[in-house]
Design a binder for these strands. Structure first.
Lengths: 162, 162
DNA sequence: TACATTTGTATAACCAGTTATATATTTTAT
DNA sequence: ATAAAATATATAACTGGTTATACAAATGTA
């Protein structure tokens, strides 16, 4: 536990803020990492690279379903990736509403190097979780519970039974 | 584990995004909760209430040190709390750079009710972590490790040793 | 005492997400 | 065949954080 950290001291009351704080820390530090190795990608592009590498072609809805972020979030990420030339879009022949998204040639060229960087990222996570082998499972269980009943609904229920 | 969730499938590579996703989920659902019980406060005001209740008077620097958020973040939170009349500021007599921040009378009036709501929030967290008693400790250990050496530094190191 | 450094606060610009709303296309149902 | 509903995408407005920069007040030092 971090010394003199009020959020840790207040236990359950500080949990949300600690998750936000940690996720921000990871976000900015990852950006910092990419910058210092001189590569022009953003942290969460990794997900899109992996998804499109695996599936070749997906549309926005499919991506947003799979990563469970809102579709406007995905649109923003993809627009940036398109602008940098890592993703190309063409409209679907049989359903003109859909964009078919694929990795560009530039993306495939960059992949071997990027994968080295990502390997180092993964190693960092493994090393930080070394002493907490249950963390990933616990996180999954928390996600699952909020999926079954939202934070809001649970809290309203707890309010009534007090 | 959430079914068909790409972020869970890719294990360590999806961790940062899952933390962000969970923290956002908690943030928006907490807002939703406050809205549905009809109270005009924001999620992280809870922290400030607790801090100022415990210490009576603090300045911005002291708050930002204790919760370990950047001072601009604290300034924004406090400005909103001032605007809603929950916090009052007066400048320090002996060091005119400092703002002395305290809870207002309105804040103390609201506290009993707010504390009921917060109790329900805490109960929700406890119930969701019920099956994962090690989660809080694990989170603390992760925070501690990144405090010792940043994500970026660790990852650069891992890159070199590959 | 004056000057350099440090400290506390403020602000600007940015970023990654959200919800709410709009629009065009496709699908379904009568 | 057409009207209604559903779906895919786009965009606007907002939020809660960040870093970088600025500046005035306080402190330390020559």
């Amino acid at each position: 536990m971090i010394k003199n950290d009020f959020l840790s001291e207040i236990k359950y009351a500080g949990l949300t803020s600690r998750l936000k704080r940690l996720s921000d820390l990871l976000l900015y530090s990852t950006k910092d990492f990419y910058k210092s190795v001189g590569v022009d990608i953003e942290p969460n592009w990794h997900l899109i690279f992996l998804l499109l590498k695996e599936h070749e072609a997906l549309n926005i809805k499919e991506i947003s379903d799979r990563v469970q972020l809102s579709h406007p979030a995905i649109i923003k990420i993809l627009n940036n990736m398109k602008q940098k030339g890592y993703v190309v879009a063409k409209t679907d022949d049989i359903d003109s509403r859909k964009q078919i998204l694929t990795l560009s040639a530039k993306a495939y060229d960059a992949l071997p190097l990027l994968e080295e960087y990502w390997e180092a990222c993964i190693q960092t996570m493994k090393e930080v979780l070394e002493d907490s082998p249950e963390f990933l499972t616990a996180l999954g269980s928390i996600e699952q519970k909020f999926k079954e009943s939202s934070y809001k609904d649970r809290t309203l229920r707890n309010l009534k039974t007090n």
